[in-house]
């Protein structure tokens, strides 16, 4: 929707070159007898990067409605990750390419925040911590024991991470999704 730059406020959402941005700040500047200038601090809603852009009065921008909704990850079908709104049971999907590295921490049933532009899914935000089971554990190399994350294991999502040598197949691990790193062991193998 083409909107006059005059009507853009802090936290408006804009689409520039097909990328959605949040207006983190909108500064109005105007020489007494001159044209109004709008300096926007913009945050890319897909990768979080920030930049500033200056607009003249009279310019139009594409304002979009971007909402955030808690949804449950159901399953993967072909290249699509399917999510469900737990209140309305409506389903939506996100392409594997847009999920990126997050897929390594996404287990069936996980509740995530889904960023929606109209009907279109833009991105998901994972919970800060997830619990994942070890499905494959390499035999520890004894010479590596000096470091705390001395061996690699494969988690149930298929991703490999470095863990301490005492971790065994079947253990449930707490993982920090922001760094993708091991935090602690939740349960030992029975």
């Amino acid at each position: 929707m083409a909107t006059d730059i005059e009507d853009i406020r802090k936290n408006s959402k804009l689409l520039i070159n097909a990328i959605p941005y949040n207006v983190d700040d909108a500064e109005f500047m105007k020489p007494g007898k001159g044209r109004a200038i709008y300096r926007l601090k913009l945050r890319n809603l897909q990768d979080g990067s920030a930049f500033e852009r200056t607009f003249h009065s009279g310019e139009k921008v594409d304002e979009v409605s971007v909402t955030s909704q808690e949804m449950q990850y159901l399953y993967k079908q072909d290249d699509h990750y399917i999510f469900m709104n737990t209140e309305t049971f409506e389903q939506t999907f996100l392409d594997e390419a847009l999920i990126g590295n997050k897929k390594g921490f996404l287990k069936d049933g996980t509740i995530v925040n889904v960023l929606l532009m109209g009907e279109k899914t833009l991105d998901i935000t994972l919970p800060n911590f997830v619990e994942l089971k070890v499905i494959e554990s390499a035999v520890s190399n004894k010479t590596d024991t000096v470091t705390s994350q001395a061996k690699m294991v494969v988690l149930e999502t298929g991703v490999s991470i470095g863990v301490p040598t005492f971790i065994k197949e079947g253990d449930i691990l707490k993982i920090d999704t922001r760094s993708g790193s091991y935090v602690e062991r939740i349960t030992a193998k029975k």
């Binding site: 500047m29 105007k30 020489p31 001159g34 044209r35 200038i37 200056t54 003249h56």
Partner: peptide
């Protein structure tokens, strides 16, 4: 570009 250069 007078006004934009003036303020920025």
């Amino acid at each position: 570009n007078f006004d934009i250069d003036l303020v920025t």
